[in-house]
Design a protein around this nucleic acid. Structure first.
Length: 708
DNA sequence: AGCGCTCAGCTTTTT
DNA sequence: GCTGAGCGCT
């Protein structure tokens, strides 16, 4: 029997609500995932819903994985049931369905998924072909094309409300782009959603099939759905068995087309909907929750919600003003060392002792006397992390932009603190890895021109730009006539390409190589394919050139083979498709290694849905958070506030808020002012540490400007 | 074809 | 202050 006794009243109400539309408004730390997983278990066990008819959509693969594990635990009496559920991100679920059904749209099922990088390359090539004015950079078009796709507009249906010279060009570029993808048998991220919707919209039979298959739909992070995702849900949820969970205060993906009105209008869209609010917070201390509440109140239009907690007030939130990004990072490192090793960094505290009882001006004068006019903290050496220390897993550092991670990383290396950075310089973005992936992509789909261009001359085969262009045009030409041509037939016709004989011979050999790979024995494994690719393409020799760099690249490629070994039990063709799809649709956070005992560094966006005992929130400055690009638009500004809210509510016990007085940006040192977020924090929840450059005054925090 | 030099653009956030 | 695209030279 499913035991509901650990749920509070609101949670229980949500879990046991009648089938039909349900909106759960869940504040941070209110047991959102718990409610979702119990709901799934409940409808299977109590409402006897067949798990194959359940579709659960999450925002990241990591969340899907976690949810499946939790459902498995709840339903451990029913072996294998959790494996029958369809769970994943919108993108991965769409990809899986499209692999089966996309021939109805003229694509082949072995389509390649293009990431943003691939997308940019295609668009840039189109812009080059069109010889567009510099006023129309490729980046402009990729943004507009994505926007159009998010609202389900094909090139012929464009209506983005813009002036006509731009609109004309967009139509041209978008049209060519979409044609190009089609010929390459490739889909970009937005296509996965848009084409899924177009397919269901235009094909009554398929629509009915999936309405029937997914009769019960659950959606996590509903506030982050975009119009295409919304349309998909409307199409699928014919039976209105739609259970959505979200929090309008945590909507932070407006920039990629998510539409907060989806959650705000749920009641209008589904008039019979049950609305349940989860307002009890189990995560954070009172101090943290109260501070977060004040921050979200900066937004007047947020839906009214009263979060409360039975947790204790806890420690005060520490605010720290650092001299610059270096000092900021040093503070974080020093604090972590101090907390996990239960000992204070003596030097630091010696210095701070000195300041007791002095006014701000006096402290500054004293600091200058002791250390000169440069940053006082730079003179304090960080201690090494002792051999024996507490776990670092409960520490995280949050920032607005990836660029901010650099200074932190430097100091963490110097201080010997193990850390992992989520996102940023990704494993799969290294050149040698991208090259390998390009070869693998070509094994599945030789029409993938982005990959072809990438590796046709890597290692060098004497095929230069001109030869590539001739080959490209030949492929475009021939696939226009016969888009389903097999590699083998293609190779026969290939003799006709007009290029230098040497290049032609190399290119022929190149395609013969691809054919060799595809004729690998059916029962070969994916790691075997990778090894064959490395050997046959000459990548192995090319990478292992005896240099140190080469060796490190080789190690990365070996790591790639290790990653693929989890697909060993599948025939390589299936494994390859699954692997490439996984890589393409991986969220930054999916790369976080949970088992590693390290501090986690990541952007606020990646942190959504996570929680830590100790959170360091850095760069709380105007222009960083809120970001300078958001200041002109009230809507975007509100999103920055929600972002701050998300950041604050990640913390369970300790929260450190740090801002720097100056910061390096674009190679210039820039003076910073503290974020408006810092100024609304309730006085009784916060405390200043170290050299305070802020003072409290009648419950409001004012910033003391300092002259050096 | 391959190397090295210069200069622009870059830092929002991501599936 | 760093990267990578583009250019020119060998």
């Amino acid at each position: 029997m499913l035991d509901l006794s650990s749920l509070n009243d609101a949670q229980k109400q949500a879990v046991t609500a009648p089938l039909g539309p349900v909106l759960v408004l869940a504040g941070p730390g209110s047991g959102k995932t718990k409610t979702l997983t119990f709901r799934i278990a409940y409808i299977i066990e109590k409402r006897l819903i067949n798990p194959v008819n359940i579709l659960a959509l999450t925002f990241t693969n990591k969340a899907a994985k976690e949810m499946r594990a939790r459902v498995r635990k709840l339903l451990s009496r029913f072996q294998g049931v959790s494996e029958q559920l369809t769970m994943g991100t919108f993108h991965s679920v769409c990809a899986r369905i499209l692999r089966k059904e996309i021939s109805a749209l003229g694509y082949s099922p072995n389509f390649t998924i293009f990431d943003t990088d691939d997308q940019h390359k295609v668009i840039r090539e189109i812009c080059d072909d069109l010889k567009l004015d510099k006023k129309f950079p490729p980046s402009l078009f990729s943004a507009l094309i994505s926007r159009a796709k998010n609202i389900l507009q094909l090139p012929s249906e464009l209506d983005l409300g813009m002036d006509s010279p731009l609109k004309e060009r967009l139509q041209e570029v978008y049209g060519r782009y979409q044609d190009s993808l089609f010929r390459q048998n490739a889909l970009d991220f937005d296509d996965l959603l848009m084409l899924m919707v177009k397919l269901l919209d235009s094909n009554e039979k398929l629509l009915q099939k999936y309405q029937k298959q997914f009769a019960y739909i659950l959606v996590d992070e509903y506030q982050d759905t975009n119009p295409a995702q919304y349309a998909l849900l409307r199409l699928l949820s014919k039976h209105q068995n739609l259970f959505v969970v979200g929090d309008d205060a945590q909507s932070i993906y407006g920039f990629r087309g998510s539409d907060i009105t989806n959650i705000l209008n749920f009641e209008k869209d589904y008039p019979t909907a049950a609305i349940i609010k989860l307002e009890q917070n189990y995560r954070s201390s009172k101090n943290i929750l109260n501070a977060a509440q004040k921050v979200i109140e900066l937004n007047s239009e947020q839906k009214e919600k009263t979060l409360w907690t039975e947790n204790l007030s806890g420690e005060k939130i520490i605010i720290r003003v650092a001299e610059d990004e270096r000092a900021e990072a040093e503070f974080v490192a020093r604090k972590i060392i101090e907390l996990v090793s239960h000992e204070k960094n003596e030097l630091v505290y010696e210095a701070e002792e000195e300041y007791k009882g002095y006014s701000i001006l006096e402290r500054v004068l004293k600091a200058r006397k002791m250390f000169g006019k440069t940053d006082v903290f730079r003179h304090l050496k960080l201690s090494q992390l002792p051999k024996k220390h507490d776990s670092l897993k409960e520490y995280c550092v949050l920032y607005r932009t990836h660029a901010q991670s650099r200074a932190l990383e430097e100091v963490f290396i110097e201080s010997g603190i193990p850390y992992q950075i989520v996102g940023g310089l990704k494993f799969y973005e290294r050149k040698e890895i991208k090259d390998m992936l390009a070869y693998l992509r070509l094994c599945v789909n030789f029409r993938d021109l982005v990959s072809l261009k990438r590796v046709i001359n890597e290692p060098a085969r004497g095929i230069g730009d001109r030869s590539y262009l001739a080959i490209r045009d030949f492929i475009v030409d021939i696939t226009a006539k016969n888009k389903d041509m097999r590699l083998k037939d293609f190779r026969e016709k290939f003799l006709k390409v007009q290029i230098l004989p040497k290049a032609l011979a190399s290119a022929q050999d190149f395609f013969a190589m691809l054919e060799d790979f595809s004729s690998l024995p059916v029962k070969a494994t994916l790691p075997e394919l990778l090894k064959a690719v490395l050997r046959r393409t000459g990548m192995e020799k090319f990478l292992r050139d005896g240099s140190e760099k080469g060796e490190s690249k080789w190690e990365n490629v070996q790591e790639l083979i290790t990653v693929t070994s989890k697909f060993k039990n599948l025939p390589w063709k299936e494994a390859l498709t699954a692997f490439l799809e996984e890589v393409a649709l991986m969220a930054e956070i999916d790369q976080k290694q949970e088992e590693k005992d390290t501090v986690t560094l990541m952007t606020l966006h990646s942190a959504k849905g996570l929680e830590f005992d100790n959170v360091f929130f850095v760069g709380l400055e105007e222009g960083i958070l809120p970001h300078s690009r958001s200041l002109i638009d009230p809507g975007e500004l509100a999103e920055e506030i929600r972002l701050a809210y998300v950041g604050l509510t990640r913390a369970r016990k300790r929260l450190f808020l740090i801002c720097a007085k100056s910061r390096m940006s674009f190679g210039n040192r820039q003076l910073q002012t503290p974020s408006r977020v810092l100024k609304v924090l309730p006085k009784e929840c916060v405390e200043f540490q170290g050299l305070p450059l802020l003072e409290q005054n009648d419950g409001e925090i004012v910033v003391e400007e300092m002259e050096f």
